[in-house]
Computed example of a mutant assay.
Amino acid sequence: MKKLVSYTLAAMIIPMAVWAEDVDLDKLRDAVSKYKDVNVAMAEGYISPDNNCVSAEGEGLPPDLGAMGMHYIQPQLLKITGTDPRVDGMSTHTNWMQPSVLIYEPQADGSMELVAVENLVFLEAWNAAGKTDAPVLNGRGWDHMADDPGTPGDEAHGFAPHYDQHVWLFRENPMGELMPFNPNVTCEHHPS
């Protein structure tokens, strides 16, 4: 549990003199509803780079935290510059009406259900743009993600150091609509 505490509290104690945005979640839900059909997302360039479903247990966290799901990224919005050894890019994209990541939960019938959206900015690009503090959405600082090689899980999920923020628009999250994991999401139907 120590790892979870540092993961979530770090985002909450960021100074408020930061880049902040308030977003009407009902308007956001309407704007991204078209992506409920994963084929629409793929037609607009979203891809699942590693076909991985992220669960808390898979990341070395308590299983009762649930999962995130499968991340479909939009390479142009993330300005991907490389994938080895980690996905890296030049993104400072924070437009919530066109999120850079869509998150799906695999279903028993093989279909994908849109559960959340996410934006991600790469730390190096963010700092190079003169932004030295984490972005804030609706009063919550985005999570700072960097892998700790001393743990079995990959805290950055295959990405270079970055800030990211999840928004659970289509699946209720008892921990909060802006938290990273959702106990009401599972990877149990992922083919791996």
Rank of each mutant, 00 (worst) to 15 (best):
P152S: 09
W19P: 09
V117Q: 05
P174F: 12
P15K: 11
M1N: 13
A156D: 07
P49T: 08
S33I: 05
P161T: 15
G150E: 02
N119C: 02
M68F: 00
L78H: 06
M97E: 09
A17Y: 04
E44Y: 11
K3H: 11
W19A: 01
N39G: 10
L25W: 03
N51S: 11
V167S: 05
L61C: 04
A146Y: 07
H71K: 02
P174N: 08
Q74S: 13
V121M: 06
H162I: 14
M90N: 14
L120P: 00
R29S: 13
D50T: 12
G139P: 10
G69Y: 09
L120A: 01
M1C: 11
P180Q: 10
V185P: 00
E21A: 08
V101L: 10
D133R: 08
M179D: 03
V136P: 00
P149R: 04
G153L: 02
Y7M: 12
K2T: 15
M42A: 11
L28P: 09
G60C: 09
S6R: 13
G110R: 02
G45D: 04
A160R: 13
G153F: 02
W142M: 12
E177S: 09
R140G: 00
H166G: 07
E118P: 04
H71R: 02
D88C: 03
K27R: 14
Q76F: 07
A134S: 15
T94P: 04
P62R: 10
D164E: 12
R140T: 13
S55T: 04
T94E: 03
N173H: 05
D109R: 05
P75V: 13
K131P: 07
V40E: 05
T81D: 01
W126H: 11
I47K: 10
A116L: 02
N119P: 01
Y7C: 01
K2Q: 15
